[in-house]
Design a protein around this nucleic acid. Sequence first.
DNA 1: GCTTGAATGTTAGTCGCTAACATTCGTGGG
DNA 2: CCCACGAATGTTAGCGACTAACATTCAAGC
Lengths: 176, 176
Amino acid sequence: MRILEAALDLFETQGYEATTVNEIAAAAGITPMTFFRHFPTKDAVLVTDPYDPLIAEAVGAQPVDLPPLERTRLGLLAALGEISAGEDATARRRVAIVARSPALRAAAAIGTEATQEAIVDRLVADGADRLDAAIAASACLAATTAALLAWGAAHADVTLAGLVRRALAQLAPVRS
Amino acid sequence: MRILEAALDLFETQGYEATTVNEIAAAAGITPMTFFRHFPTKDAVLVTDPYDPLIAEAVGAQPVDLPPLERTRLGLLAALGEISAGEDATARRRVAIVARSPALRAAAAIGTEATQEAIVDRLVADGADRLDAAIAASACLAATTAALLAWGAAHADVTLAGLVRRALAQLAPVRS
DNA sequence: GCTTGAATGTTAGTCGCTAACATTCGTGGG
DNA sequence: CCCACGAATGTTAGCGACTAACATTCAAGC
């Protein structure tokens, strides 16, 4: 946790790419080597995705006769309640930092690929075509990610759940 | 072009991360330094996006009273003709390599961010809300990217335009 | 008290990438 | 025809992320 605090502080003051893991290690009172024993990469301090199984399950719980995109969309909305509970203070700090760095957004994109894969596997297990499933999952996750990044840059009174609902509403089959 | 050929060959035989730019340079008969004078980064050999203005213009050409997602969707479909003309032989090789490497997919994701930004700017210029525009553009581009990656892994007789049409059809406002 | 295992440190190295400077070489003007 | 100029290439040195092999500390359990 000392590492995480030190890293967050440094990232916020001088930016992500401008701070080296040597600096982080020094600020945390450890060796650079020790940093990598706790985080496999520099970006792992900010990018973590513990929600994949939860989301995949929520998608699978939607009616099977719906098209993949609609199942994914409703599944994400259903999972939203439990996920946005994890909206602690540091979560927003982390998202804000990620939103500012292309390298970090790329790392996050790789992270959401895992989520996409979980969803796709679930959809395919219920008989969906793999490409159709990938299209549906990636579109929904992209919209959600856009909302997430906007949340990181938004004022404190804006809620993540609201933005995500707005994002997924745009993908609803019949729009006003 | 010697560099590009050498890189493509090495990437295909031993994989992207397993081949160093030293190897590429040696295979092309040059110095590592010279490699970076022609390509700013190692991934620049594979990831290039010259279509941004074309796409943004196509999106802008769609009826202004449609919602952002629909404008983007139709714009991408309209631009598809001219883009898939660039389906030369090496394009597919490149996409296939990108599809296999997480690091390259991440680099490509950053590339499509530029496209997304171009689309968003165009939509915002026509009065759309910035977040709504970002959601629409990222969802459409994610679906398109899914199709592109599938194309890279598909048989030779599968056409890119067909896959993209299928991808964007799933985002149509009223589905069967 | 001794041992075991986990956490940490040390050293050295690879790879992507950059900067400062030297070198070759083909082309056009004197 | 020669020289000067600029473009492309090479050389050296270095930074930063990351890894591997090995040594060290240190706390808990037998």
